[in-house]
Design a protein around this nucleic acid. Structure first.
Lengths: 196, 196
DNA sequence: CCGCATATTGACGCATCAGTCAACCACCGG
DNA sequence: CCGGTGGTTGACTGATGCGTCAATATGCGG
């Protein structure tokens, strides 16, 4: 070995830049040169690590997913009561801080891109599957603890997740009638209905 | 006038073609030539009616919205009971038949495009606003008739609509764990909870 | 049947980028 | 200090596709 490898950090640096650019201007408008600039490097270097723009974006989508899981791991372990865990979990998806907003933007782009790309559908399947597993587990724990009403946990998780996705989209769209606070109100109401 | 105008029908023919192409391959991959071919005309003619590709797509998004409203108008008038009206209304959004699936695809593209285009955000505001108005009205009628539980109709409408949006997206993404039947099951369950 | 407005066409010009490449640089081991 | 691997660069190329345009067609009124 003639040199200590910088591959890992350079790849992440470029991927993160790609996510930021996608969030700002959208996949459709994204140029490889934009990503290079944001990552403070050149298009040549971007292509040194990613053969095609498509490869780069797939890696970015995957990274965005893993980061989201990672960020929430501590949260799931820091609330003993299922009731609190559910609220904290749902709360963490409110598009409030820049990091979460960026993650949502990238997800939205993934969805639309995946409509016509089976590879990305598989990635979405993992994202959604993991999300549903976590949510269903919290609900099941809550039911066992007598904190939540009865009902198929998976079905309830799907209902909650679907609602969060749809509401977040409207918030991101700068809808006059849907903002983070209203979204929280709707989520709180639904969770309360689950508890009572 | 030297000739009877064909503008109206030609515009619609092109717009409809644009929606079909967007649904099939996505906005990002859509070429003006694709739309021309699908509309059985030439790129020159497309540009005769729409100055830019952007204009064409904005018109297409708007048309998609108006058609969706139009299609559901009879449905809303043919059910005397709010209970039945809600079920029929929600049912009509299940991505089952090709027309509905295409409409959903176009909506999804609109959302993501609108994330970076204020003009389209305004259009989304109309779509979403109208949808929420209709849904909230049904819920209010149902509450007045003693068929639905109490609760802010607008908040409940937002919850339902958000959920439908999110679930439909997953169905469209050919998710293994979310298909039309499961989506219907989730919707039915939530509506039942609203009724009891 | 002529004149004119409306409509249609597709080849072309021009700008935009993804991806390539040849030159060059940085670091480490020997 | 030299050789080699790993890493970086940005100018360039080839392809692509939007929008233009000049030529042409179509139908109606007079």
């Amino acid at each position: 070995m003639a040199r200590t490898s910088v591959e890992a950090e350079r790849r992440e640096q470029i991927i993160q830049a790609a996510c930021e650019v996608v969030s700002e201007i959208g996949f459709k408008s994204l140029r490889v040169a934009d990503v290079a600039k944001r990552a403070q490097t050149s298009t040549g270097t971007v292509h040194y690590y990613f053969d095609t723009k498509r490869d780069l974006m797939h890696a970015a989508f995957e990274w965005n997913f893993n980061q989201s899981l990672e960020r929430r791991r501590p949260l799931l372990e820091s609330h003993a009561e299922p009731r609190d865990r559910l609220r904290a979990f749902v709360d963490s998806y409110l598009p409030r801080d820049p990091v979460t907003v960026t993650a949502w933007h990238v997800w939205a782009e993934l969805w639309v891109e995946a409509l016509h790309e089976p590879d990305l559908q598989e990635l979405n399947e993992n994202v959604y599957g993991e999300w549903r597993r976590v949510m269903a587990a919290i609900i099941r724990d809550g039911q066992d603890a007598g904190q939540f009403r009865d009902g198929d946990p998976v079905l309830l998780a799907n209902a909650l997740i679907g609602m969060i996705d749809g509401l977040a989209l409207q918030v991101l769209l700068a809808s006059h009638s849907m903002n983070v606070d209203r979204m929280k109100a709707v989520c709180d109401h639904v969770i309360a209905a689950l508890e009572s």
